[in-house]
């Protein structure tokens, strides 16, 4: 395919046009009055975005969402990696758990939320549990794949030198599974945010999702859109950050492949 040669300045101009055009259409549609009247105009959303930045409720909500998502995600990552390495390296366990894991990963955990709420109440603790349960599967499955594809030569070497299990775990199994683990951890980070916000939307758990529903019920649509914008920005920043971290962490791997 031919590489399009275009100056960065022009590219950014075009990008701004590409962002401005839908906003202009949005404004026109609002002005024409064909859409439900509660939709705010562009200028209102912009002023709401700056208003949100000065609100304690907004920052508090965002912080609580991030905290719950992060905690659940960390728990899921640790549990998933440890379980995955054990299951993936023991053939018998691998075969025994496959149905259970297939079932678990296709289970929409948010459907379990009312049950978890009954058991734990509608609070941050419950949110963390639901997030952790949702994030566990991608990490677990990717780690199992990673632990499974041990090269025969490496496995033989480990056996011949009688490497103790603990050393084998940390120095052989973990590094060789790391690229796949990284992918699983990254996938589950997106899930963590999605589920955390989802939990907040449905339940009374505090956070940005709850703020969005509150603003919407209070007919402050402009603020609701502003919060949605920041929710997207956060998700985007996290995805970018993890991609960078993965590239740096797995540099040795990339160089090997080339």
């Amino acid at each position: 395919m031919k590489e399009s040669t275009i100056s960065p300045g022009l590219l950014w101009t075009l990008r701004i046009v590409a962002i401005a055009a839908p906003l202009g259409i949005w404004q026109l549609v609002i002005a024409s009055g064909t859409m439900p009247s509660m939709l705010p105009g562009v200028e209102k959303i912009f002023s709401a975005i700056s208003e949100a930045l000065g609100q304690a409720a907004f920052w508090g909500g965002l912080g609580k969402t991030l905290l719950a998502a992060l905690t659940g995600w960390l728990i899921a990552s640790v549990v998933g990696v440890v379980l995955g390495l054990v299951i993936g390296s023991v053939r018998f366990l691998d075969n025994s758990t496959s149905i259970l894991i297939d079932f678990g990963r296709s289970f929409p955990v948010l459907a379990l939320m009312p049950v978890v709420i009954m058991l734990l109440g509608s609070n941050t603790m419950m949110e963390i549990v639901v997030v952790a349960l949702s994030c566990l599967w991608p990490v677990l499955i990717q780690t199992i794949y990673g632990a499974r594809r041990q090269e025969a030569a490496v496995a033989d070497t480990v056996a011949v030198f009688r490497i103790p299990p603990m050393l084998r775990f940390t120095k052989v199994l973990l590094p060789s599974a790391l690229p796949l683990i990284a992918t699983g951890v990254r996938i589950s980070s997106a899930i963590a945010i999605l589920v955390a916000v989802g939990v907040e939307v449905i339940s009374q758990a505090p956070g940005i999702g709850r703020q969005i529903t509150l603003m919407q019920q209070a007919q402050r649509w402009d603020l609701a859109f502003a919060y949605l914008f920041f929710a997207g920005l956060t998700g985007w920043a996290i995805a970018l950050l993890l991609q960078q971290a993965e590239n740096r962490l797995l540099k040795w791997k990339r160089q090997n492949d080339d």
């Binding site: 399009s4 275009i6 590219l11 075009l14 990008r15 590409a18 962002i19 948010l110 997106a190 945010i193 999605l194 589920v195 955390a196 916000v197 989802g198 939307v201 940005i208 999702g209 969005i212 529903t213 919407q216 609701a224 859109f225 919060y227 949605l228 929710a231 997207g232 920005l233 956060t234 998700g235 985007w236 996290i238 995805a239």
Partner: peptide, 21 residues
């Protein structure tokens, strides 16, 4: 090239937050 950042932003919006909107 032009819309790439826009797509990535929309993809990152937590889908569940769209529900109340």
């Amino acid at each position: 090239k032009i819309v790439d950042p826009i797509i990535h932003f929309f993809r990152a919006v937590p889908q569940a937050a769209l529900v109340p909107m």
